[in-house]
């Protein structure tokens, strides 16, 4: 299968800050690939390089078959971009936003109008055609931004935090639309803070931290490789946790992870660990047993989960 994007040893400095420290990855055609990481991990910088807002200063980046220093217009014409912040044109109506954007891609007026109708229908925005952008809710704006990114029938869509700030209904709708695109063979690259989003949408994930890639694999693979299958969340303040608990868990073959003020216990056999908590002085009622998920992997890999 062809690679749509290949990065070899990408590096980027902003002044003294090394935002990317030698990042390598490749993304295959038709794949949905997710980038996870804290703010400042280097996800957005990587995205900006792909869609031509940042120059490649170190390493090599190949986008849709072309090695680029700054992604040129003819490559950009094959890409759709959903940026982190909604930069819709407030001077234009909903439909005009799409039509004018189509014009930027060289669509003729009739073509652009037709494509606009299709996309407004696809994103469920038909009844907002003549609305002004600032009349739209956050969820509707996001849908419009996604519609705009599709105006040129892109082969590759880059989505920088596509559902940040959306309510659950809006988020599910966006996910559903992205699945439709994927089924049509469009390659998707997205960044997200939501593990559920990553699990739901992505074939493969790259976990970034401080400008490097820490881990790579499908959501399932990451969970299997990086954490034990069961997690117990300890829902009491740390000072009420019986002393020596960590050692007992470790002796029993489990793992302990402290994230800021939260405590997580991991085990191969969750029930077995759970049943012993009482004898270690921790009420099982204050604990929550569940299968380990991507969030556990993320917390474990990217340190203690502190925000930058």
């Amino acid at each position: 299968m062809n690679n749509v994007v290949t990065a070899e040893n990408l590096g980027k400095c902003y002044g003294d800050l090394r935002a990317l420290k030698g990042v390598s990855f490749s993304i295959a055609e038709g794949e949905c690939c997710g980038f996870l990481g804290h703010n400042g991990a280097g996800k957005s910088t990587t995205m900006r390089m792909i869609y031509g807002l940042s120059t490649v200063d170190e390493g090599r980046l190949t986008v849709l078959g072309r090695s680029v220093r700054l992604t040129p217009p003819d490559i950009k014409s094959l890409i759709g971009v959903v940026p982190q912040e909604d930069n819709l044109d407030p001077d234009l109506t909903v439909a005009e936003n799409l039509e004018v954007y189509g014009g930027l891609f060289g669509l003729r007026r009739r073509e652009a109008a037709e494509r606009t109708r299709e996309l407004l229908a696809f994103m469920g925005l038909e009844d907002k055609t003549r609305a002004r952008v600032d009349e739209l809710s956050g969820g509707l704006k996001r849908r419009l931004v996604i519609a705009r990114a599709l105006i040129n029938r892109p082969r590759l869509v880059v989505l920088d935090e596509p559902t940040t700030g959306l309510d659950p209904q809006a988020r599910h709708l966006v996910w559903q639309k992205l699945r439709t695109l994927k089924a049509e063979g469009v390659t998707l690259i997205l960044t997200t803070h939501y593990m559920e989003e990553a699990t739901q949408l992505c074939d493969r994930l790259l976990v970034m931290h401080e400008g490097t890639i820490l881990a790579e694999g499908s959501p399932r693979q990451l969970i299997e490789r990086h954490t034990l299958p069961w997690a117990i969340e300890v829902l009491v303040p740390l000072e009420q946790v019986p002393p020596g608990l960590n050692d007992k868990v470790t002796e029993a073959g489990g793992e302990v992870l402290q994230v800021v003020d939260g405590l997580f216990l991991y085990a191969a056999d969750g029930e077995a660990l759970w049943s012993r908590l009482g004898s270690w002085g921790l009420s099982p009622h204050a604990c929550f047993l569940r299968p380990a998920n991507l969030e556990d992997v993320f917390l474990k890999l990217t340190g203690k989960g502190e925000e930058d």
């Binding site: 807002l53 014409s77 940026p83 044109d89």
Partner: peptide, 11 residues
């Protein structure tokens, strides 16, 4: 309005 950034994502 970040209009320029939106345009720059295009060709």
């Amino acid at each position: 309005q970040k209009t320029f950034l939106a345009m720059l994502a295009g060709p």
